[in-house]
């Protein structure tokens, strides 16, 4: 049922509304006095009396209306925002539990403590999410299997909770980036194109893909018009993704470099970040943040909104006034009887 532009959960309660007249008819506090001629005539009292009765009626009305359960139904609103659609791929492999950006001996580092790569990644991802209110996020955690923890959603609470949860526990042994990348691309499949689409890959290692996987990834990413960011949290100091003259010989064949070469070869917008310190991590995040501001249509679902609270608050305020008056009255009566 619709009334005052609100939906009513139990409109039957509205049949109680005639009770509003009660305060105008009950006279429970009547005191018999000897002669009413002694009682002064006071127009202000009439106004106050009228106000009290109105307040009492308002209280009743609000209580009855709140009983009737007013609510605004759930609705979807399209609005234009700025941002992007982001799928975050986080490596869940065991190496991510290692401490991040340590100088010196790797073996001395703590494992799975607050300075682990996963924790650090979590912290900066949270920041990133907070900075971008209009973005739509998806979240994939991967080791040897890709877990699409969160399909694309606008719900910030859910995203934050998912990112939080991703940093719990210990990592698994295997890493399968290819599967994760395909999963991420699949998340965009079947979605209407709203704005720029980003895949943020957070990992600390690379992997060589099979030809089949490479082909599929290239095809999917082009088709879905995706932008790829790779936050490479490197564990070996000194190694860069791009080959440089004077590089260590062994580095040329590392999976990281191979992966980097592959990404470059697909022909999609791609940007790697080699992250060696906290600072560079935040810079990387800031860069992504800056780059990806496009107008996009944001579909927002406004949840069913319970409006009973408003009525209850009004009733409470009115009741509070009445209570004050009542206390003053009680004091007055007590004083008169002393």
């Amino acid at each position: 049922m619709t009334l005052f532009g609100l939906q009513w959960a139990s409109p039957l309660a509205l049949y109680l509304l005639p009770l509003l007249v009660l305060p105008w008819f009950t006279r429970t506090q009547d005191k018999t006095i000897v002669w009413s001629k002694f009682v002064p005539v006071d127009p202000l009292s009439n106004i106050i009396g009228f106000a009290f009765k109105t307040l009492a009626s308002i209280v009743l009305a609000c209580l009855i209306l709140s009983l009737a359960g007013p609510y605004l139904p759930e609705k979807k609103v399209d609005r234009i925002g700025e941002g992007a659609e982001v799928v975050v791929l986080v490596d869940r492999s065991r190496s991510m539990d290692d401490a991040f950006a340590i100088k010196g001996q790797l073996l001395m580092a703590s494992v799975g403590k607050s300075d682990s790569k996963r924790r650090v990644a979590k912290k900066y991802l949270q920041e990133f999410i907070d900075k971008r209110p209009d973005d739509r996020f998806g979240f994939v955690l991967f080791s040897d299997k890709a877990l699409d923890l969160l399909p694309l959603t606008y719900n910030k609470e859910t995203i934050r909770a998912t990112v939080d949860a991703s940093a719990l526990g210990k990592g698994l042994s295997e890493t399968n980036i290819a599967k994760a990348l395909i999963k991420a691309a699949e998340m965009y499949q079947g979605q209407t194109y709203r704005g720029s689409r980003i895949v943020v890959l957070v990992s600390d290692g690379g992997q060589e893909f099979t030809e089949e996987a490479k082909q599929k990834i290239a095809e999917l990413y082009k088709q879905q018009n995706l932008t790829l960011y790779w936050l490479y949290m490197r564990s070996v100091t000194g190694m860069t993704l791009d080959a440089k003259p004077g590089d260590n010989e062994r580095w040329t064949t590392t999976p990281e470099r191979k992966l980097h070469t592959f990404f470059k070869s697909i022909g999609i917008p791609y940007l790697p970040f080699e992250i060696g310190s906290m600072k560079s991590f935040s810079e990387a995040i800031a860069t992504i943040d800056k780059q990806q501001y496009q107008t996009l249509i944001v579909e927002e679902t406004l949840p069913r909104e319970d409006k009973a609270k408003v009525f209850l608050i009004i009733a409470m305020l009115a009741m509070f006034l009445l209570m004050l008056a009542q206390m003053y009255t009680a004091w007055g009566v007590r004083k008169a009887h002393q």
Binding site: Q29, D30, A325, T329, A330, G332, V333, K335
Partner: peptide, 9 residues
């Protein structure tokens, strides 16, 4: 009553 709302008859 000395103070407050008083209804009398």
């Amino acid at each position: 009553s000395y103070a407050g709302w008083t209804e009398m008859c």
